[in-house]
Computed example of a mutant assay.
Amino acid sequence: MMKSLAIVGFGISFSVFGGQTPAKMTQTDYVNMWSNVAVEHMLTYRIPASITLAQGLLESGNGNSPLATEANNHFGIKCSNWTGDKMYFDDDAKGECFRKYPSATESYNDHSLFLTQKPRYAGLFQFPVDDYKNWAKGLKKAGYATHPEYAEKLIDLIERLKLYEYDDKTAPETKGTEILASNAKENASSSTGTKPKTKDAAGNKAASSMKIDESCLKYETHIAKENKNDVKFVVARKGDTYYKIAKEYELAMWQMYKYNNFVDKKDMLEPGDIVYIEPKRSRARSKGATYVAKNDITLIEISQSEGIKLKSLVKMNGYTSENVTVQKGQKVLLR
């Protein structure tokens, strides 16, 4: 069950902006960071990007709440049917259990699945993707949060920050339709006793007669390259996220994180970042290969630069920790 916004959403937001705790992110910062992900999810799940961004802003205090910073939970989803990590926080009751994610991207993924898989939210998908007002009112009516002005707060954020502009990213032929996200449709059908569509003769899930234009889901592709140790990678561009690249190469998020030493919990990538799309090597191909530091550099950065597993570098060089800074001029064994 979702939390009471009055405590975890508004309470945290007010303390952040009331001067008690310096805000680390502004509303503009938050929107800039997560708008691409919100649009991607809109095109995939038919949830308005404006709604996703407004909920993220409201529920996480612009990404500054303890639940967001310590548990990467931007939507206040509690531990119902959850087997992952947990964080306990005072909400409607003392010490309630909330889901804890390895990254905020996972929170965004879970939020989309939460709305599309819960039958009580199925009715939302009858609204056009650009009808944020009915979506906001529908979320309140379905019991997403207990605050009496929840819908009004979402609408105010959307209009004040012009978040509705992100809802225009859908293809013209999909706007104004009443397409249900597939999971929501199946769940809603089963809950009303109507037999949902299952599989066709080829064993594939039967598609709805009304489909989202798949051209909306296409992005400029990245060109995969191989480094000198034969590890495939791509170079991040402006606006890239691990989620976007994982989707392009059909990888799970845990694979992206594992391949790229995901230790700083940074979902947004910087232009020029190296992103590996397959496991790194345990050692360099060339015998006697070494890395000579031109400047002070961390072992994690060397691992990312050379495509050598971090644990292997630690073991080969006799380090006791992965959090090592290699000094300028120092050699690091790569094999």
Rank of each mutant, 00 (worst) to 15 (best):
R237C: 02
R237W: 00
K238V: 12
K238Y: 09
G239F: 01
G239K: 00
G239W: 06
D240Q: 12
T241Q: 06
T241F: 04
T241W: 03
Y242P: 03
Y242Q: 01
Y242C: 02
Y243G: 03
K244M: 06
K244T: 05
K244G: 10
K244Y: 00
K244R: 10
I245L: 10
A246E: 07
A246C: 03
A246D: 03
E248W: 01
E248S: 09
E248C: 09
E248M: 10
E248K: 08
Y249D: 10
Y249L: 06
Y249P: 09
E250N: 13
E250A: 11
L251K: 12
L251C: 13
L251T: 13
L251G: 04
A252Y: 14
A252T: 15
M253I: 08
W254L: 05
W254A: 07
W254F: 15
M256I: 08
M256G: 11
M256H: 08
Y257N: 07
Y257A: 06
Y257W: 14
K258W: 14
Y259N: 06
Y259K: 01
Y259H: 07
Y259I: 02
N260G: 06
N260I: 09
N260F: 06
N260Q: 10
N261M: 04
N261S: 14
N261K: 05
N261C: 10
N261A: 12
F262T: 00
V263S: 10
V263Y: 11
V263W: 14
D264T: 11
D264C: 00
D264I: 02
D264S: 13
K265W: 15
K266F: 05
K266M: 14
K266Y: 00
K266G: 07
D267P: 02
D267R: 01
D267N: 09
D267S: 04
M268V: 08
M268W: 04
M268L: 11
M268H: 13
M268Y: 10
L269H: 02
L269D: 04
L269K: 00
E270I: 09
E270C: 03
E270Y: 12
P271S: 06
P271C: 07
P271F: 04
G272S: 06
G272K: 07
G272C: 02
G272D: 00
G272N: 07
D273N: 07
D273S: 12
D273I: 03
D273E: 02
D273P: 00
D273R: 00
I274W: 02
I274D: 03
I274L: 13
I274Q: 08
I274E: 10
V275P: 09
V275K: 05
V275A: 05
V275W: 05
V275C: 05
Y276L: 07
I277A: 13
I277R: 04
E278W: 09
E278H: 09
E278P: 13
E278N: 08
E278Q: 15
E278Y: 12
P279V: 14
P279Y: 15
K280I: 13
K280P: 11
R281H: 12
R281V: 10
S282I: 14
S282P: 01
R283F: 09
R283I: 08
R283V: 09
R283L: 11
A284R: 05
A284D: 11
A284Q: 06
A284V: 10
